[in-house]
Design a protein around this nucleic acid. Structure first.
Length: 587
RNA sequence: GCCAGCUUAGCUCAGUGGCCAGAGCUACUGAUUUGUAAUCAGUGGGUCCCCGGUUCGAAUCCGGGAGCUGGCUCCA
């Protein structure tokens, strides 16, 4: 993580002040809130009668540039609370008044002044506005005061600043590149998925090409789970109200659940989670310590109400499939099970091209259920597993759910963004509520440990991340179309179809481009569809019985016999092969 | 949900309150038989997001709604 007061952060914070000063110069009746530096820049929250739009940016930037060239020093003023109150009252800044009230007694109260602009601020700042080198306003958005929906909505201006113009340009270029790999754009271009206004927002339609990739992911996932000692289960999509009452979801989770439907005068709810079903399955018979651990995994489709404004492509949806699993075990088994789950997760991620992993360990909050000793054991087992696997992690003290400690794992993608996908979460609540037991060696009933675990998170979201990670150029094992055969002319059509049949017989996803186009056009089409391999067959190939191989990323590979090509494909098409960065595009 | 912006052909986008709303790509038809990123010609394609209102006249102005996008203190 970044040093909080790095030089760059300080400069960005100062740029936020300059932006606020500029906004005050350009517009009237500006109420100021706060303007911190963020990971990628800074923002400042305002309240003003004028509705800010991107069209205002040039004017504001111009004024900012002026302030920078005027080179005002940043002066720090330390004042008493009474003085501060007076100053803020004189400035007529109501939000600042509230911010001041939040500063704990005894803490130094400081203002920063630069030119005619003064702001309650902890600092630090650069020496003067002239030190600000390169900045740009990026966007404007609404934002509640303090982030609370009940508070007034302010206008937030986002911007960024760098030590020089070149670095800023590089950053802006990266933003452009991120836009190019946006899964919503690629999803349409590569015909992977869509949503429909008629179906409803946040509900994903998987087109054949997207579904093929999903099928590969799911097949791989199932195979790995079976190999890894899991059992695969299936459960229904709805369940009686009583189930959700016992689980506690109707008390604590109802606002995320869809309205019930009436069946035979009994209320049924669409499931927002799979766990209660797995628990019922556990309870279908008496369990012995000899049966444990039990690891039950399910690709379970759940539905949750998400506020309209938070939906985003595949990243935040209303219906999604969790790669869920529940582990039921004895106290003695907890340590091994956690380690095993973590290793399993890391291995799975590596296969999808993610190797840089960090973790967060969330420990017991104030309000919690479950015995203290169990919390302690569970938390220690999580931490031990992190150490054993050498995963860098941070501890979030008290950040766990009320029902158990957890580890969240995040992976870094091809352009350096971090995504949280895996969770290993203890649950001391549900086994209690459902009165889960097993018979121990002593012949008595005991309470099993329960661990929720998701590796990919949701298939939808994971798929979106994958699309962006690979910029749509999936490695061979995942590509929806692995090979496209391009006959040079009609005369090679039968030859091409024969090759296609052989490729398909070997289990490859392949097609023939039968259009009466020039080979250049067929290549272009295949490149744009990001097909990993193209096989060009003309008179030469028919004569020699070979195929001319073209790779999406490396171009012309020369001639190969079909069987050699197939062996090469087989060697390459394995999970874990193919690194992102192969954009499948020249120029 | 809230704030702001956006919504015109399958896609990307033009289009001052005034002829029958346009382009490129795609699709379709025909010609062409092509050697490593776009062959040519022709044809089709529209509830200008939806519902109201103002007006002699609305893609354009006004109101309501939907969807999408950016956000909604750190963090996911």
């Amino acid at each position: 993580m970044k040093d909080e007061h790095s030089e760059l952060d300080r400069m960005r914070h100062s740029t936020a002040h300059v932006m606020a000063a500029a906004v005050c110069r350009v517009f009237d009746h500006v109420q100021l809130d706060i303007g911190p530096a963020t990971d990628n820049g800074f923002y400042y929250d305002f309240d003003l009668p004028h509705r800010l739009t991107p069209e205002d940016f040039p004017r504001i930037e111009e004024e900012m540039q002026k302030i920078v060239s005027e080179n005002h020093p940043f002066e720090r003023l330390e004042v008493s609370r009474a003085e501060a109150e007076k100053m803020i009252r004189d400035m007529g800044q109501t939000y600042k008044f509230e911010r001041l009230a939040e500063i704990p007694a005894g803490e130094t109260i400081s203002f920063y002044k630069s030119g005619g602009f003064m702001d309650l601020c902890r600092g630090p700042h650069v020496k003067s506005t002239g030190e600000i080198k390169a900045f740009k306003l990026l966007s404007v958005a609404g934002s509640y005061f303090h982030g609370l929906e009940t508070n007034p909505m302010l206008q937030r201006l986002y911007g960024t600043a760098f030590e020089d113009q070149k670095t800023l340009d590089t950053f802006l270029k990266q933003l452009e590149e991120a836009k190019l790999r946006d899964h919503r754009k690629l999803g349409r271009e590569l015909d992977l998925f869509s949503t429909s206004e008629m179906v409803g927002p946040g509900l994903i339609l998987w087109h054949p090409r997207g579904a093929r990739i999903r099928l590969v992911i799911e097949d791989f996932w199932r195979r790995r789970h079976l190999e890894g000692g899991y059992e695969l289960v299936y459960t229904p999509h709805i369940g009686r109200g009583g189930l959700w009452e016992t689980s506690g979801h109707l008390d604590f989770y109802r606002e995320s659940m869809y309205a019930p439907m009436q069946i035979d005068e009994i209320e049924y709810f669409i499931k927002p989670m799979n766990c209660p079903f797995h628990i019922q399955m556990y309870k279908a018979q008496m369990r012995s310590y000899r049966d444990l651990p039990m690891r039950w995994a399910e690709l379970g489709t759940v539905y949750r109400y998400e506020k309209a404004g938070v939906l985003a492509g595949l990243f935040r949806v209303r219906g999604f499939t969790q790669d869920d699993a529940h582990i039921f075990c004895t106290p003695e088994q907890v340590g091994d099970e956690v380690k095993r789950a973590m290793r399993f997760a890391i291995d799975m991620w590596r296969c999808f091209g993610f190797s840089q992993i960090t973790a967060y360990l969330s420990t017991r909050p104030e309000k919690a259920v479950g015995e203290e000793a169990r919390w302690k054991q569970a938390t220690e087992s999580l931490e031990e597993a992190l150490k054993a696997e050498g995963v860098p992690y941070e501890v979030d003290p008290g950040g766990g759910a009320f029902y158990g400690p957890k580890i969240d794992m995040r992976a870094r993608d091809a352009i350096g963004r971090e995504w949280q996908m895996s969770t290993i979460q203890f649950d001391f609540n549900l086994p209690e509520r459902f009165d889960m037991t097993y018979i121990g060696q002593d012949g008595k009933e005991h309470r099993p440990y329960m661990v929720h675990r998701a590796l990919l998170g949701s298939i939808e979201r994971f798929f979106g991340i994958l699309v962006e990670h690979y910029a749509g150029a999936f490695p061979l094992w995942l590509a929806p179309e692995q090979v496209r055969v391009l006959p040079l002319t009609e005369k090679q059509l039968d030859f091409a179809r024969d090759i296609l049949a052989q490729l398909r017989a070997e289990g490859f996803r392949a097609t023939v481009d039968e259009r009466s186009e020039k080979v250049g056009a067929k290549i272009r089409g295949a490149q744009m569809d990001k097909v990993p391999y193209m096989l060009i067959v003309g008179p030469k190939e028919m004569e020699s019985g070979k195929v001319s191989v073209r790779s999406r990323s490396a171009g012309d590979q020369g001639g190969l016999s079909l069987s050699d090509f197939i062996s090469r494909m087989k060697a390459e098409a394995v999970p874990g092969s193919g690194l992102p960065g192969d954009k499948g595009q020249a120029g």
